[in-house]
Each structure stands twice: as structure tokens, then as C-alpha cells.
Design a protein around this nucleic acid. Structure first.
Length: 416
RNA sequence: GCGAUCGUAGCUCAGUUGGUUAGAGCGCCGGUUUGUGGUACCGGAGGUCGCGGGUUCAAGACCCGUCGAUCGCCCCA
């Protein structure tokens, strides 16, 4: 009989349990709490969308679309794609559900995304993001509020000191196009001195040459035209309003005029929250304004801003959260006591007390488990105690123990 | 997609220039203690050395391939 081979997990996916899962959950819990503080409504959208949703909105030449999407034909012959990002799918939902009536909409969601990439630390094929969007608002105050949300999230996660907000503007459509043309002219003039990668970028995504790490490119970037010289008055005013708003809100930021973003849809504000604690994967939250996106999906001109945060990356940066521990563990001795304990534990749980009880084991075993669970108390139910209508309430931290009437047990635990 | 390093118990690792039945710590299970955990002591289970092929009298050690992880590039959260 041949041995059965256990299938392994798909490359770039992960199984989470224990501390890893607790970190992950804590990031989402914190996000969900802060999101309410800022008036962002929860939204749920499909993990799978028609391929066109992403292909059209992200830009055909971007890496995400050209080589990283999990796309396949379903049984009906339609091309569908596992979402590689949130924004395009949310924009699609906005249009197909007629959510224009709710504009401006402040939306938040979290969940898995899929990108066929080479896995590294903080980088997976199935990864998870927090996402926040403001759709249907052209005002710079929306940018400020959105950034404030991100900033407070990081603070409440306790990692703000290791992360900095870097900010830039890409200008409006006209500004961006003019700057882009000037950059192409500049790089074409120095084409022979560029790195191979950047010559390739010149054709696909010239803005990306700006943050190249290749020394040959860095020299040419020094003399490259800056966005500030191509900003229209409106674009300049917009950016100024965002930065003064950030200052007013007490949100620290630094300008990085070289910051560009990979996806084609960004306009005006672009930003990244960056840390140096994750190696090459330093971006922890990234986003910007995408006023042109909804039109590319066949909708009306609709201004919008948003960001996404890598849950795995945030989870690696935070301190280990306190794990789940019951308030109390019941330790029945004998069959009769176990039956009483079943009734008692139900009553404790209904009273809002986190109570647990092993399925089997002698007293020693049960106390060991109670201790390992991190519970504050053990309730020992033996014949002697039950005969008196009492139980022994044992404090597992200092070992002290006292008798409490069964009817007063819940109150005693809550009071402690 | 490219380059590099690594893959030995659940975890962290040791394992001489290839040479008997592959080890340690932690963890897990049991016992010392048939009504008292955390400490201590004693004992036990658990590995076809990632997988496949090759070289050799002999491979955990060497070679090739493959899968996976990690680091960098690319890209991104």
C-alpha cells in the first residue's frame, strides 16, 4: 500500500493560529473600532470579479495586470479574476448598485487579495488588506480625514513612532500629463545612460524611474523635472489645502516629490506610510486620490480617495497582543459534580463570564490545563463543597482559595 | 520573471575530512502526588534528515533536479 502524500499548502499562502492569528485579528479589530470613530461604513464586496474590472482600471501595462493576476475562465466561459486590490471592485459596486445617491460615501473593508508574486517576508500570494475609501468627494478635507484615519490607526496599534507618512502630489490630469511628457523627454535624452530596467520602464511607466535604486538612474533623476514646475494653479491649491489640513489636524508628514504610485489611476494626493523595519517591503499603508478611475469603468466623473494597508505587515510590527483567556475554568471532581458543573458553566456564560471546562481529566490534569489557559480563577466542585451548596474559588495567580455559595459565584467573579 | 542563501523531532538548533541503532534544549504525554496548578525530579512518545535521482563499499553530509522558506532585484500592502 503506497503511503498517502499529504497535500501541502499553496505557495505564498499561510495558516494562522496562536500568536500569529491573534496579531492578525488585533489589527482588524483596531481598524474596525477606529473606522467608526471616523464615520466610515463597513462594506463587503466579492473576492472574484470580471477580469475587466481590474484590467481596465489599474492600467493594462502595470505589473499587477500584466503578470500578477489570478485570472481564469469560469465554466460559463467568462474571464474572472481573484481581486488583486480593493479599489476597483468597490468602484464597480458603487456604479452597479447606484450608490451615487449616498455620495459622498466613506467606506471601509478588509479581506484577502491575490497576486501571483514571488513570496517574501511581508509579501504573500494570498495577502490581506484593510481598505478605506471616500467616494464622491472632490474636497481636500476628504484627503485629510482619510489620512487622519490612517494616522490614528497606526497610533492605536502602537507603531506610529516607527512609521512615517510620506506625501506627494501628482497634480490633476493635465498637470500629470505635462509632467509625464517632460520626464519622458528628459529620460529619452539620457536613454543610453539608464539602467536596463529603466529603459523598460520608459515605455511602460516612466514615472517609476523616479524611485529607481540603480545608481545609474539616480544620477539622471537628480536633474529630472519635478512635478512642482508642472502643477496647474488648481492642483497647487489643492495640495496646499491638504497639507495645511494635515498640519491643523496634527498629522505629521514629510514631502517626497519623487513619490509616485504604481497604478495608473492616481491623481493629486499620493502617499505612503513607510517603515524601515520590514526590509524591502517598507510600505505599510499606501494610497492616494483616483479621480479618473470611476470613468474608466464607464461611470460618471467621480472624485475619490483611498488607501490600503497590509494586515500581515502591520501584524508583524505590533507588540504581541494578550491572547484569549477565559475568566474562569471549572474543575468538577466526579460524575455528580460534572453534571452540576454543566449547569453552572451555562449560567456563568449567560452572565457574560468567559468560562471553560475540560472534557475529561482528574483534578491535577484539570488544574494544569486551567493554569495553561491563562484563566484568572478555577472553580473547584467537589462532593464536600456541593453538599454545602458551595464551590471553592481559587485565584490562580496567588493560589489563594475561598468558599463561595454557588448562587453567588457569578457575582463574586464579576466583582473580582 | 532574475540572482543568492538555506531545508535534521511540534519549535530553536547540534551532528568532525562521507563511516554502526541520528542528538540536545524547549514543548507534548505519563509518573513522584487516588482533592490542588505554576517549581523540582524520574520516565516516555515523536525523525523514511523537504522530495526525487546520481556518485560511493558506505550519503543527513558530495553532485543534479524539484518543492518550499528567507534575502535582494522587479513590483507592491
Amino acid at each position: 500500500m503506497a503511503k498517502l502524500q499529504t497535500p501541502h499548502a499553496v505557495r505564498g499562502t499561510q495558516d494562522m493560529f496562536g500568536e500569529g492569528q491573534e496579531r492578525f485579528a488585533h489589527v482588524i479589530d483596531t481598524f474596525d473600532r477606529v473606522r467608526r470613530l471616523y464615520g466610515f461604513k463597513g462594506v463587503e464586496v466579492p473576492v472574484i470579479e470580471p477580469t475587466a474590472v481590474f484590467a481596465r482600471s489599474l492600467g493594462e501595462t502595470t505589473d499587477v495586470v500584466s503578470k500578477e493576476m489570478y485570472s481564469f475562465d469560469d465554466r460559463g466561459g467568462d474571464s474572472v479574476t481573484l481581486r488583486p486590490e480593493f479599489t476597483a471592485g468597490i468602484a464597480r459596486a458603487y456604479l452597479t448598485n447606484g450608490w451615487q445617491q449616498h455620495a459622498p460615501m466613506k467606506l471601509a473593508t478588509a479581506g484577502p487579495l491575490f497576486r501571483y508574486e514571488r513570496p517574501q517576508k511581508g509579501r504573500y500570494r494570498q495577502f490581506h488588506q484593510l481598505d478605506a475609501e471616500v467616494i464622491g468627494a472632490a474636497e481636500p478635507i476628504a484627503d485629510v480625514e482619510l489620512l487622519g484615519f490612517a494616522d490614528q490607526l497606526l497610533k492605536e496599534l502602537g507603531i506610529a513612532s516607527g512609521v512615517v507618512l510620506t506625501l506627494n502630489t501628482l497634480g490633476d490630469g493635465d498637470s500629470r500629463d505635462a509632467w509625464r511628457a517632460a520626464l519622458i523627454a528628459h529620460y529619452e535624452a539620457h536613454r543610453s545612460a539608464l539602467s536596463e530596467d529603466s529603459i523598460d520602464r520608459l515605455g511602460r511607466n516612466p514615472l517609476r524611474i523616479l524611485d529607481s535604486k540603480d545608481p545609474r538612474d539616480i544620477a539622471i533623476n537628480d536633474t529630472a523635472p519635478g512635478i512642482d514646475d508642472y502643477l496647474s494653479d488648481a492642483a497647487r491649491d489643492f495640495f496646499a489645502a491638504v497639507t495645511t489640513g494635515l498640519d491643523a489636524a496634527g498629522i505629521a508628514w514629510t514631502r517626497n516629490s519623487r513619490l509616485v504610485r504604481g497604478l495608473d489611476y492616481y491623481r493629486h494626493t499620493a502617499f505612503e506610510f513607510i517603515t524601515n523595519r520590514l526590509g524591502a517591503q517598507g510600505t505599510v499603508i499606501g494610497g492616494g486620490r483616483y479621480d479618473g478611475l470611476i470613468e474608466t469603468l464607464g461611470g460618471p466623473a467621480t472624485p475619490a480617495v483611498g488607501w490600503a494597508a497590509g494586515i500581515e505587515r502591520l501584524a508583524m510590527l505590533i507588540d504581541a497582543p494578550a491572547g484569549d483567556a477565559p475568566d474562569v475554568v471549572l474543575v468538577p471532581l466526579g460524575e455528580a459534580a460534572e453534571n452540576r458543573a454543566i449547569a453552572l458553566i451555562a449560567a456563568l456564560r449567560r452572565a457574560g463570564i468567559a468560562a471553560d471546562m475540560g472534557y475529561k481529566g482528574n483534578m491535577k490534569k484539570r488544574l494544569q490545563r486551567a493554569d495553561a489557559s491563562g484563566a484568572r480563577y478555577a472553580v473547584i466542585l467537589g462532593e464536600e463543597e456541593l453538599a454545602r451548596g458551595e464551590a471553592a474559588l481559587k485565584d490562580l495567580r496567588d493560589g489563594s482559595q475561598r468558599s463561595v455559595a454557588l448562587s453567588a459565584l457569578a457575582a463574586a467573579i464579576i466583582a473580582a
